[in-house]
Every structure is written in C-alpha cells, then in structure tokens.
Write a protein that binds this DNA or RNA. Structure first.
Ligand SMILES: [Zn+2]
Ligand SMILES: [Zn+2]
Ligand SMILES: [Zn+2]
Ligand SMILES: [Zn+2]
Lengths: 127, 127
DNA sequence: ATCGTTCTTGATAACGAAACTCATTACGGT
DNA sequence: ACCGTAATGAGTTTCGTTATCAAGAACGAT
C-alpha cells in the first residue's frame, strides 16, 4: 500500500512550481530554502516514484537525472532550452509510429524510445 | 596538434571489434585482458575524443556513457537491444526534419536531438 | 640521430550523483 | 488508542567519471 506523506506532497508541489527540468539536488535545495526539513534521500525516492507513476517526466543530461511535472499524464516528448531550461511539451504521433514500425521491421519486440529536442529558446537566442 | 599514439589506435580497434555499445570500463577490461597496459583514464579520454570527432556514437544509459564504433560518419540513430546490446543503425530523414521544424516552430535555434529506440531483438525475444 | 618542446599518459586522488543502511517516525486500518 | 508496516533521513557506501601532475612519448627542428 502506498502512503500519503507530507514529504511526497511537498516534492510534487515543488516540482509543479519549477520552470523546466530540475535535478533532485536542486529541488532538495529549493525545499530546504523554504524551511522544509525534508531529507535528500526522500527527494530522490519521491521523484523516482513520480516518474514511474507518470506524474513526472525524466531525462538524463550530463550524467544526472532531471525531472519535471507532467501536466498531461500521457506519452509525449520535450523541446528544451539548453540555456535556461524552458520546456515545451511536444506530441508527435508520427514519431511514435515511426519508432514502433522501425522496431518491428528489425524483429525487435517491446519497443520503447527516447526522443528529446534541444535548442536555444527565442529569449536565449537573442541574449 | 593531435598526436598519434598506440593507445588511441588500440581503443579504436577494440571499439571496432565490439558488438553493440560498450562502456569505457568494459572496453578497458577487454583491452587489459589482451595484455595491453593501457590506463583507464586514457580509455575515457580516447572515447570522448572519438565521439567528438564523429568516429564513435555515444548514448547515456542508466547513468553511464556507452560508446560504439560508427561506420558511417554521418548523423544517424540506433535501434538497440536492451538485453544483449545488439545495435542496428537507423537513418530517418523524416525524424531529422521533424526535429528541425518543431524547434523552429517554437522559436528555438541551434536545434539538436536525442533519438534512440530500444527493444528486445529477435533472438532475445525468443529467450 | 639528437635535442627540446609540447602533448599524452596513467596511477592515484578527488568528485558527485545516487543507492544503501537501519534505527526511528508516522500513516492507515482496525 | 493500538498495532503492523511502509516511509523517512542522517550517515555511509558505491560507482562512473574527471582532475592532478610527474614521467614518458611524439613530432619538428637542428
Ligand atoms: Zn531559454
Ligand atoms: Zn514517444
Ligand atoms: Zn552509429
Ligand atoms: Zn538481443
């Protein structure tokens, strides 16, 4: 059974107020700055659980996991600013079906995929 | 100026004889098993350089970097078996143009993307 | 070939993200 | 309130990767 603790809710809320993707450590610092006595291990566990349950998206960048609250709990992808972290949610049915068919064509089963687009957002491009 | 050392050549050759993606540590062990006195730091540096120069592809999996010799030195993607590491090189112009256009549509410049397809290869599916 | 300069190497230390440990806390059903 | 048990968290450990820096090797010049 999965219990409701104020720690998990604090992580969920902190994730929701963050712009773009954040690391577990960054979120931990943010929570500590607000006076929360939450532990680092708990933040790691909560983020991992949220990602599994589909409430958060995660991606690997430079050897660390970044997380982001996920408004639509359906499969989708992201367009992410390399500089400021601004993130746009992307739906791409064409990519979904392409990935599935390319796997099938080569005899692969249980296909999954990693699709992320990076760039400099309009604001950071001007900077 | 970039110098030619037997260490870099050994790494290049070891990469070439490896099936699928391998980690720096795995390649280091393989080289050591053949009697090579190469150092671990050198393997990390060589792999990093090869990836930058386009002679190797790299991807992040479970917090570690994996590398693979890349026969065509052009941009492409991979279909990778989660179990045995078997890799198929994929060319997908449709995905390339999709990534570029989706970035442009949202005002993003200098677009790049990460696209990897995972699954179980035919052999591993039967197992 | 010898020299001298500069890049490369590699054993080891240092680093950082993440997982683990386990005594303590506290949720939730009764 | 009581109890069983999942969750917490400070500290420890793991593990991939990078930094250090003295010793060694490659290359150009002589
Ligand atoms: Zn930006
Ligand atoms: Zn998708
Ligand atoms: Zn390739
Ligand atoms: Zn396989």
């Amino acid at each position: 059974m999965k219990r409701n603790t104020w720690q998990r809710e604090a992580v969920r809320q902190a994730l929701g107020t963050s712009e773009g993707f954040v690391s577990a450590q960054a979120l931990y610092s943010a929570l500590r700055d607000t006076g929360s006595p939450i532990g680092l291990a708990t933040v790691y566990r909560a983020l991992s659980d949220l990602a599994v349950e589909g409430e958060a998206d995660s991606l690997q960048q430079e050897g660390e996991s970044l997380y982001r609250a996920c408004t639509p709990h359906t499969h989708h992808h992201h367009l992410i600013c390399r500089n400021c972290g601004l993130t746009v949610e992307i739906e791409a049915d064409a990519v979904e079906s392409w990935a599935a068919s390319v796997a099938a064509q080569h005899g692969f089963t249980q296909p999954s995929h990693v699709v992320d687009v990076f760039g400099l957002c309009a604001a950071c491009s001007r900077g």
